[in-house]
């Protein structure tokens, strides 16, 4: 009897924890540092920075690999007509940049890649990016090109809703920010929706010189 009671009690306790965890809403739980001291969620398989040329929010070509070579690079995929998650992510990263010295932020790229290039022309992106740190780069391109890029990065594809009577539509987009490291220009970490500014600040400071330098 006592042989079976204990595993059952443990299972019930586990279930209780799961149920409690299920009650958490409005963003991810606080991130926990891995053995490398980094708070970002490590990707199972680091992914190479895709070889693609997009158009930046000034209308200039942007060769992803060449422009960000050997630099810590954050990439987020969203769209300008998104009122909630996209601007909050970008606002959080702007606040993070405000907290860090320019000797650090000068060596970090923050990219906002549109999932809605039909509406997000360079001009539209220029308006959107104007609300955030002036060093952040908005990127647009052909939809096929962007979908391929996202697929290469193991991100979910954009999901387009049916336009309403006014032609307005919403677009499902990945919620996380990817971090490409200076060491090998591969994405190694993801920052889920709800990542705190202090956690971003910690990791950007730690990773700006690469993961090798960050090891405790």
């Amino acid at each position: 009897m006592t042989m079976t009671a204990r595993p059952l009690a443990l299972a019930l306790a586990g279930l209780g924890l799961l149920l409690l965890a299920g009650c958490e809403t409005g963003g991810a739980d606080a991130l926990e540092a891995g053995q490398d001291g980094i708070l970002g969620v490590p990707l199972e398989e680091p992914v190479a920075k895709p070889d693609v040329v997009l158009t930046d929010h000034h209308g200039e070509p942007f060769d992803l690999r060449a422009e960000t070579d050997g630099e810590l690079t954050l990439a987020f995929f969203g769209y300008a007509s998104c009122p909630d998650i996209c601007p909050v992510h970008m606002a959080n990263l702007t606040s993070v940049f405000d907290r860090l010295p320019s000797t650090v932020t000068d060596r970090i790229n923050v990219l906002f890649v549109t999932t809605d290039p039909a509406r997000d022309t360079p001009e539209a992106l220029e308006g959107f990016m104007g609300s955030f740190d002036s060093d952040f780069v908005g990127l647009t391109g052909d939809l096929d090109e962007i979908v391929d890029l996202m697929t290469e990065l193991n991100l979910p594809r954009p999901v387009f809703e049916e336009p309403d009577d006014d032609g307005f539509y919403e677009v499902g987009h990945p919620a996380q920010v990817l971090a490409f490291l200076p060491d090998d220009d591969h994405a190694h970490y993801a920052y889920p929706w709800g990542t705190r500014q202090s956690d971003f600040t910690h990791d950007l400071r730690a990773l700006v010189d690469g993961a090798a330098a960050a090891r405790p």
Binding site: G27, I85, V88, A91, N92, F132, R196, Q197, S198
Partner: peptide, 22 residues
Amino acid sequence: PTVGGDDGGGGHDGQDEAHGDD
């Protein structure tokens, strides 16, 4: 303001972290 105030969307560790750890 677009920037500032809230933190992380749901998280609220906000301003207490803002003091100069620079």
